[in-house]
Structure formats: structure tokens, C-alpha cells
Design a protein around this nucleic acid. Sequence first.
DNA 1: CCGCGTTAGTTCAGGACCGGAAACAAGTTC
DNA 2: GAACTTGTTTCCGGTCCTGAACTAACGCGG
Lengths: 394, 394
Amino acid sequence: MARPERRTVRDVRRGNRAMLLRELYFSGPASRNDLTRLTGLSAATVSTMTGDLLGDGIVVEAGQVESDGGRPRVLLRVNPVYGFAIGVDVAETHVRVGLFDLGMTELAKVDYALRPVRHDPELVARHVLAGIDVVLSDAGVAPEQVLGVGVGVPGIVEPGLDGLIHAKTFGWDGVPLGALLREGTSLPLFVDNGAKAMGQAELWFGSGRGASDAVIVLLGTGVGATIVADGTAFRGTSSSAGEWGHTTIVAGGRPCRCGARGCLEAYIGAEAILERAGAPIQSDWQEELGRLLAERSPVIDETVAYLGVGLATLVNLLNPQRIVIGGWVGTMLGQTLLLDIRRATAENALAEPYAATSIVLGRLGPDVVALGAATLVLEEFLNAPQVARITAAG
Amino acid sequence: MARPERRTVRDVRRGNRAMLLRELYFSGPASRNDLTRLTGLSAATVSTMTGDLLGDGIVVEAGQVESDGGRPRVLLRVNPVYGFAIGVDVAETHVRVGLFDLGMTELAKVDYALRPVRHDPELVARHVLAGIDVVLSDAGVAPEQVLGVGVGVPGIVEPGLDGLIHAKTFGWDGVPLGALLREGTSLPLFVDNGAKAMGQAELWFGSGRGASDAVIVLLGTGVGATIVADGTAFRGTSSSAGEWGHTTIVAGGRPCRCGARGCLEAYIGAEAILERAGAPIQSDWQEELGRLLAERSPVIDETVAYLGVGLATLVNLLNPQRIVIGGWVGTMLGQTLLLDIRRATAENALAEPYAATSIVLGRLGPDVVALGAATLVLEEFLNAPQVARITAAG
DNA sequence: CCGCGTTAGTTCAGGACCGGAAACAAGTTC
DNA sequence: GAACTTGTTTCCGGTCCTGAACTAACGCGG
């Protein structure tokens, strides 16, 4: 209602510059001429703007295109080594830190194992800070060249400077990871939920590319979703939107670790699947699920049916253009059973919205939280390159 | 991802003008000085802009405020009779047409009864067109003064010029109501789902005011929801987002008229409630529900429990700041049982998002579809006053 | 009743921006 | 090598917002 908050003529420049940069980033190398078409800006504007960007080193030339009777086009692209982004994946069993260039190529990474027992926030913070130093020196990148650090963590991240984290299953309740990290580094920080970071990766570089209304669902030990509205991750009022796993699909059904009953996660979470199949608790989950799939256990069919119910809820409620299925359970199920999943969804969804939705598999595999976290930095950079640069310095 | 699409310096003006107008509309009469604070614009800009708006007749003076030692403030407000909006409610049993000024005061209205049996699209269109003529002549308003006509209809409205409507229960499948109406009038048309129109009214003038992330749920014969993200109704990729009623809450449960099983509507839709209570089919539903409530039938408790499950899904998935309960069933239940509804929701929702959500009753009563439809026109007007004007002329 | 202080609102010059047109650049083709 | 074609840059005009100077309208104290 009180949404549009623009102000001065200067914002126009920033907006157009961001648009041009985005276009250049995603539509690969392009000539100035292409850019006028892609952005809708005049040739004059594109010229001055690319001039600036070239001067700043954000954009570089990338060869020429043979002409067919006229002056050849000079191709431009975003300079992948103009700056770098660090992505951090804080998970149950490890802390992983990766260094990426702007093309999201991983230049270096380092892992620290975590005891699943208790997760000392200060230990995690130390790992992250050490990891940052390690990847930077490994790749020979100076801290001043880093545009920011994205951190994907379990649980709900409160918006705000401290990056307060609530994650019951992780043993964290109100841990100010952001503040802890800020004590050890002056790099700009972007803390977000790991599943959302992953969704971000899938949205920008995976099967979600180009969709403006999409849902990226994550099926693993936990069950979550990233809701994309209008091309951006939807966060809700306290940044916890997308808690799809605790949607009730059987009122009064199986108890869930969240305390309620009949949650989706209590049926299609990895643990729930294996439990329903009567698998031994201490087994290797991934292997066990593979066995169930291979023998086409009835439990799998049930799981697909429940998944269809859950997906139908998303289809009806959000009417997305695309649903991307990710996470290790999702990948395993989807690889053999995508058609069945679609059918199960169709059975439970309304015809019109179902027809508008395509259900596809994620492309990036389950191990992309760090990439997704780094993508948060990239997003900021593309939205306001110079601003990010300044913050990075300060 | 490819979201920001601004272009020229002229957009700045339009955006600021819209912002100023919104502020003026919702923050009541205000002086130019107040507006500089409210909008963040400079006094100079506010001065020239209000000058324009006064010249166009969009804004008028509204008295002065006593000074306390300086020049007195001149109050300004949006001119409620600068233009008018027509709102139309096409429902099962009637077509209602209302004429509103910009203050959303109803100046005239007219009703046409519809046989619930079959709904001839051409008949509906004739009623709407006749209704427009009637309310205009009743109130003595010329067609040139009308900024647009909002139409709330049952079912899903496809985006596009024709306003294609799909509404199984209404007997419409691909009816181009927009096109039919355009044959009889050149006024700008805004066709949307009736529940969404109602949600719009509640969002702008009812309990939803000021919320940027909210869900307005509609409990009546059908069950639906308007999802508000970032202050605007979220539509999804084919405008059918918000189909909350066909969310599955009991996998394999009661059959629903949509064809699936265990939908929310199959438990808390008016018909379902009465059926579960064993009420005679031909009874007066409203009266019957009143009786059940008065005697505190166990069916009511069940209904509240199911409603809690459905609301919890919204809380978890969308993390709204506010949930507004509307519709005639919602109003009746909520008036006596709001606390129970809240409790039932808390039992099924995650703690963090639940804590961030306030669940409140709608303020506007069930009969505001026409107002909501007119609000669509108002929204357009506030976003781009002059453009709306031009379209109105053409 | 007349300055003076105070607050509200207006006018104007200045700087930033975009688009259109013309100019310039760098090829191909005949 | 002249004519043509296409890509890119330069320049000018118009729009926009802001800061500062300026005008307007009022209360108050003498």
C-alpha cells in the first residue's frame, strides 16, 4: 500500500545501471548495441554508462563479432575478477567456506568438521573467520577485493544487523552470529537460512532461471521451500516464510518433531520415510533410501502421494510458474519418479493453476549452500555495484 | 531476477506524484509542510507538485490550521469528487452495481436478482451495463467523470484484455466478460475475483490497513484467501494465487466438490459444516450455523480445529504480519470464537512465525465486494492519476 | 498599530539524468 | 576508393529534484 519509495533523479541512474549490469551478467557477452535492445535504454545512455563501467573496471571488453557489412560489434561482459564473493555453509556436520569470483566459479574452499552434538556459536564463528583467511590466501585474493560474505545457516534468521538465529534442532536460540562475525571481520555480511541460500542458487543458476514466480522446495532431512515472488525471494514479515515442511497434511496425523501433528515433514522428511519403512535407525540414510527406491517399496509410493499433496498446496496457494525440486531426498526421488510426482500433484491440485505450473528437478545437486550464500553477495553487487564496493571498503 | 524495469527521468515524477497522492489520501488532510515530512521530498518539489494537482482538480484545499506564531498551514486533501469509481459484484444470486466517489462513499447502487440455476453471460453483462447507467443517472454523474469500473466475479480470472473467467460452480468456463462489457462501454475495466476484491477492500479500508504482508481469508460457502505481499495483492503466474480452500488438510479425507479429497473447504466451507452437523440440506444456512454456534455444537469445535490447521499453513508458509478473517462464516465464527481460533492456530503453527502474526476479524462485513471492486479503480488512480484519466476519456 | 520573530510556502538557479539527432568510426562491397 | 552499412560517441534540449533565497501570513510585545 505504501510501497513505492523512490525519490530523486539519481535513483534512475542507479536503477538503469543495475538493469544494464544484470542484463550483461545473464545474457552473456553483449555489444553496446545489444544492450540498447535488452534494456530499452537509448544508445546514448548505454554508451555513457558502459563507459563508466569500463572505467570502473566492472565491465571489460570480450572480443569482437565479425561484421556483416558494417562496423564490428565490440562485446562486453562483467569482469569476473572485479571482485569476489565468499559463501559459507554452516550445517549440522560441517562449516564450509568457499571463495567465488563474480562468475560464481569456485576458486578455493575449505571445510571444518563439526561434532553433531553441540554447536558452540563461538567455535562456528572462529571456523568461518579462519576459513575466510584460508580461502583468500589460497587463491591469492586480497580482502579489499571481497564484495561480501554470504552465510547460510540452519533455522530462522531474524532480520536485523545482529543476524539473530533461531534453530532448535541445531541447538541455537537467538545466537547473534552476525555480530560474532563482525567482531572478526569488516567485510559486509549477508546471513540467511541455508535452504533459502540454496533456493537462491537454484533460482539464479539452476532450474529456476528466468522464473518470476517459483517455488524451490528442498527435500532432505528437513523439508523447506523458497518462495519466489516477482523474481525475488519472499521473506514474510519476520523472514521465516517458506516453512513448508510444517504444513499440516493429515490433521491429527503422525507426530512431528516440531510438536504439532500431521506435518508434511513427518511424512516425507528423510527420517520419516525410513521410519515408515521400518529401516534401522542407525543405517546410512542415503543408502537405505536408495534400496527402497530400487525395490520400489510401497513406502515410496506413499511418499510420492504425500509429496503430491504438499506440492498441490503450493500450486493452489501460490500459483507458481515453476516448482523446482531439490535436496538430496528430492533429487533421489525425482530422478526416477518425476512423472509420478507430477501425477500425484495433479490429483490434488486445481486444474487451472496446475496447468500453469511446471514441476522440474533441481540442477545443482544438494551441495550448493555455499554457492547460494555467495549469490546473496552477487545480488547485492548487481543491484548497486558501487555501493557494495564502498561498504566493502568500510 | 529481471525485476527492475525503470527507464527515464519522467518516471521519477510519476512515482513521486503517486507517493504524494497516496500519502495525502491515507494520512487524511495534510499541509504541504506535512507532506514534505511524509514523503521525504523537498519542500520545493511538494510545492510544485501540489500546485499541479490543485490545478488539475485532483487535490483541493481543506481549511487551515491555527498557527502558533507563524503562517497558518493550509490543509490539502484529495478531491473526493474529482472522479468516481464503479464497483460491480457478480455473485451467485445477484448482480450489484455501486457508484463511489474517491472517498469510497457509496453514492448510488442497484441490484439485479439472478436465478441460481444458470448464469447467462450476456444477461450478466446487460445487467452490469444497465446498472452503470442507472447509478450514474441516479447520482447525476456524467460518464466522463468515471475513472473506471471494477468487477468482482466468482472463479479464476485470466489476465489479459478479455477478462476470461473460469468458474465451474458458476457454470462459466472461459467467459470473456471483459470483452462483453467493452462492447457496451468505453470505461476502463478491472475484472478480478470477487474474493480478491473483498480482500482488497479489507486491505485498504478494513482490518488490513497498513499491513505490508498479510492474508485476508474469506470463509463463506467457498473458502479463499487474498495474499498480500509487500502491500499488494499477490496474484501468481496466472492470477489464481490464494486458492486456500483446496489445500489438503486430511490426505485421503472427505471428498470435495473440486474433485480432490480432504480439502480445507470440505471441512470448513459452510456446506461442509452443516453437512457434518447433519443439518437439513434445504435449511437457511446462516440461521442453521447460528443455531450450531448458540448450542456450541461439537461440530463447531471441530470446525475451529480444522480452521486452525488451515491458518497454521498460512502462518508457516507465508509468515504474514496479519491474518484477517472475513466472509459470513468467518464473521460468525470469529465473533464468538476468535480466541479459540487463535489457540487452534498456535497448536499447529511454528512458534516464531505464529508470534509474528496477529489474527483479527474483518471489519467490513461480508457485503463489500462492490467496494473492493471499486478499490481496484482507486488503486489505479492513485498509482497514475493522469493516466487513469486519459484512459477514461478514450 | 507597527516592527519582529516565526512558520509556511514559492521561486529560481544549479546539477543530474535521459533521449534524439548528428557526427564519427570501422568495416564490407562493388 | 566510393558508397553503403552498422556500431558507438558527442552534443543539445527538456525534465526532474534540491538548496537557498525570497515572499506570505500570522502572533506578540511594545
